[in-house]
Computed example of a mutant assay.
Amino acid sequence: MAEYSNRQLQIIDTAIELIAEGGIQELTMKHLADRIGISEPAIYRHFKSKMEILEALQRLFAGEKSIFMKQMLKRDISAIEKIELIMKYHFTSFAAKPALAAVMFSEGIFQNDRRLASAVLAIMQQSGDALATIVREGQKASEIRNDIEPQHLVTIILGSLRLMVNRWHLHRYTFDLLEEGKVFIKSLKTLLNKGQ
């Protein structure tokens, strides 16, 4: 995972806030400098362009997520427990940084640049592959229903997560994502176990 200075992390976090508040058009070096309280040239000492900031944002998110997912794959717990921890990880991460959800679940922000779009696709693929491995393990161990294709269960899990987080964002974070997440995880576990 790339190492960033405290100032670079501040710039990335501020970029996330600006995008979440007003879309990609709000992310300019001037707006960043104004929000942080430094000069525009100071921003350029840390990042050469807006594109470099967006790439750093994606790398940071992907790196943290990759480490977590690799740890989950290695844990000696049931597949259902792994899925529960993965869901809790996402709900907790987004609750801690609401603006991150608005940015990472808005592929439209990145679609006009091939590199950025490819990075988003890679993040989605990595998560889906890891989750599919866990689902297959659970089906093999008879912990997860096996009358539904693993990839379809992955789509249900990740799609539901995405929908809930997007709804939370659109409601301007007025409901408790962690509490809603707990209720959802309970329903998800019932769905995964049904039919065994």
Rank of each mutant, 00 (worst) to 15 (best):
R172M: 09
W168L: 03
S142F: 12
L60E: 13
Q126V: 03
K48W: 11
R75N: 10
E180W: 09
K48I: 05
F61C: 01
R167T: 15
G63I: 09
P150R: 02
T155S: 13
K97M: 10
G181F: 05
A122L: 09
A99Y: 08
M124L: 11
G138A: 07
I80D: 02
I77V: 15
R162Y: 11
I109H: 04
S160A: 13
S78L: 04
G181V: 02
L188V: 10
T133D: 10
S160I: 02
I144E: 04
N146S: 15
F94K: 01
N112C: 07
Q111M: 12
T92I: 11
L116Q: 08
L54I: 05
S187I: 00
R59W: 13
L161T: 01
P150A: 02
A132Q: 11
E137W: 00
I86N: 00
V120E: 10
F110W: 03
Q139K: 02
G138P: 08
R172K: 15
V135R: 00
E84H: 08
A102M: 06
A130K: 02
A62Q: 10
G181N: 07
S106Y: 08
F68L: 01
K140E: 14
Y89Q: 00
L178D: 10
Q151P: 00
I109W: 05
H152K: 12
V183Q: 12
S78Q: 06
D113G: 03
V165T: 08
H171V: 03
R145S: 09
S118H: 10
G159V: 01
D113A: 01
E64S: 07
A95F: 12
A102R: 10
G159T: 03
Y89S: 02
I83H: 03
Q126Y: 11
N146Y: 09
I83G: 04
F105S: 02
F47A: 00
G159R: 01
L163E: 14
V120C: 14
K88I: 14
A99E: 15
N112T: 10
F61M: 04
I53T: 04
A130R: 03
I123N: 08
M69E: 13
K74C: 08
H90T: 10
A119E: 13
H90A: 11
A96I: 07
N166F: 01
A119Y: 09
F110D: 02
K82S: 05
L178K: 15
E137V: 02
M124W: 09
K65Y: 12
Y89F: 15
M104R: 06
E143W: 11
A62L: 08
E179G: 03
G108W: 09
H90R: 05
A117I: 03
R59E: 15
E179D: 14
V165S: 01
Y173E: 14
I185P: 08
R136Q: 11
N166K: 12
M87C: 15
